[in-house]
Simulated assay, not measured.
Amino acid sequence: MQTASTNICERMGRSQEVSELKRGTVIGCHLCNKSIRDISWLLNIPRSTVSGIIIKWKQLGTTATKPRSE
């Protein structure tokens, strides 16, 4: 039986990318004054990811991702 504190790599995986819809939802929640903890819990993504999305949006004005090199 797994607990609520499962390993983050099991939940999301390091190679997965947050969808554009979720990134937009993070920004929408942020603009509605939701805390990073609340956003993380609502969308089931790590707090560090939520924070990174918000910081990138504040600095660059976009949530788009750069293409990855293979």
Rank of each mutant, 00 (worst) to 15 (best):
L21P: 00
K56S: 13
C9S: 11
Q16R: 15
E20Q: 09
G24N: 15
S40W: 07
E70M: 08
V50N: 04
L21G: 05
T62C: 11
C32N: 15
Q59D: 12
T62D: 10
R23K: 15
W57R: 07
Q59E: 15
K22P: 00
L31M: 14
I27C: 04
R37F: 01
L60P: 00
R14L: 10
R14P: 00
T62I: 09
W57V: 04
T3K: 08
L31H: 10
E70R: 13
R37L: 08
S35V: 06
K58S: 03
N7H: 09
R47S: 02
S5L: 03
L21H: 15
G13R: 06
G28E: 10
A64Y: 12
S51R: 07
T49L: 07
A64N: 13
S69G: 11
I55Q: 15
I55Y: 11
M12T: 06
T63N: 12
H30D: 09
V18F: 06
L21S: 14
T62E: 10
S35G: 08
I8E: 05
L31W: 10
S5N: 08
I8N: 01
Q59T: 15
R23F: 08
S48C: 13
T3Q: 07
S51H: 10
W41Y: 14
R14V: 04
T63K: 09
S15D: 10
T65L: 15
S48V: 12
E17G: 02
N44T: 02
I54W: 01
V26K: 01
N33F: 14
S51N: 12
I8A: 03
C29H: 11
T65C: 12
G13W: 01
N33R: 14
V50S: 05
N44V: 08
I55K: 15
A4T: 03
G24H: 13
T62N: 12
S40P: 03
L42H: 11
R68W: 15
E20R: 06
C29G: 03
T6P: 05
W57Q: 13
Q59I: 13
N44M: 06
L31P: 00
S40I: 07
L43F: 14
G13V: 08
T49E: 04
S48M: 09
S40E: 02
G13T: 06
S48L: 11
R14Q: 05
P46D: 06
Q59G: 05
V26T: 02
W57I: 01
R47A: 01
V26H: 02
N7I: 02
R11M: 07
K34Q: 05
D38T: 06
K56L: 12
I39C: 00
